[in-house]
Write a protein that binds this DNA or RNA. Structure first.
Lengths: 169, 169
DNA sequence: CGAATCTTTCAATAAAAAATGAAGGATTGG
DNA sequence: CCAATCCTTCATTTTTTATTGAAAGATTCG
């Protein structure tokens, strides 16, 4: 058998109805987080897999490329959605889906949402300063909107930890 | 002055620091919802605008095209993030940013998140049926994951209305 | 009603994002 | 240490998404 890197793309072996259903479900969900289809494919496949799968098996089942499989697994590992299992006497890494689905949500909140909220708060401070140079008359309306946004962001930052905690349960 | 549709694209008139800051902020936020840059530009501009703006003014200030302005405003209208104001004796529609920022979040939850959660629940039911034909031995692990997902979705559907209510305050 | 103005639509183009696979790096078994 | 295997990286290609602006539709004014 030729080494993986030289191998022609393995033909996608047919997926079971169960696997297809799972894959479609996760493609749809992970799109909410802006993640590419390939990542949904990998996770969806692992989600209903009885045992751990190696990268080449994932490639063979889904028909995706080496690069996509490698990168997708990297991303999923970083987010803690997938982990490798130790199999004695086996060279290839084998992956299983982590049961903790909350990781998707909490990682998204912590790595996407919260940073943007913080940046926004800095921007608001700068904007408040800038507004002082607007004529008194016109300042009011945008100032009110800014206040509202500030209030709303503050509230958001308060719910988020609570929400994260709730999701982790 | 030539009619708008025939007019060459208006040169972007320079934006104030305040406007740039606001626009950048909303481009970043709305990207979370998967919305295009042009929409963030429009909303960011309106957000700090003292008075209502007509579409051609938005085009002139941001340098975006007729089509992008029209479509972006349509989207923002549909989501209730922007509304037209009545100005006596004025032909063009004029737009203001709605103060209710929560609309972005709640619309997203209601139009993107919830529908997907419902679809997922249907899929889960189908998957549970399909799993019955798996050999008893292998069924367990994916079945547990599915249970967890089901539980988690159920929880999610319970928080969401609460969250929406909280955000609307 | 008819001309002028304003808005929407959509086919074409441009820009951004994802997927591909060859090259090279890392690891392991002999 | 060498060779085989496995994994990652990244320049290129493909696919998807956003933008453009001309054409056509809708509205208003005289």
């Amino acid at each position: 058998m030729p080494a993986l890197a030289e191998a022609s793309r393995p033909k996608p072996s047919s997926l079971s109805d169960l696997e297809v259903e799972s894959i479609e479900m996760f493609i749809n969900f992970l799109r909410l987080l802006g993640w590419p289809k390939s990542v949904g494919e990998i996770y969806g496949l692992l989600f209903v897999s009885v045992g751990p799968l190696a990268m080449d098996e994932i490639m063979a089942r889904t028909g995706m490329s080496l690069g996509a499989a490698s990168q997708g697994l990297k991303l999923l590992r970083e987010f803690g959605a997938v982990r490798t299992v130790y199999l004695p006497g086996v060279r290839k890494d084998h992956y299983v889906a982590s049961g903790e689905l909350s990781r998707f949500a909490t990682s998204y909140i912590e790595e996407e949402l919260l940073p943007r909220m913080r940046t926004a708060q800095e921007r608001i401070q700068r904007m408040e300063k800038m507004m002082q140079s607007l004529p008194e008359s016109g300042r009011q309306i945008p100032a009110e909107r800014l206040d509202r946004l500030k209030y709303w962001l503050g509230k958001g930052q308060k719910v988020v930890p609570w929400l994260v905690k709730f999701l982790k349960l």
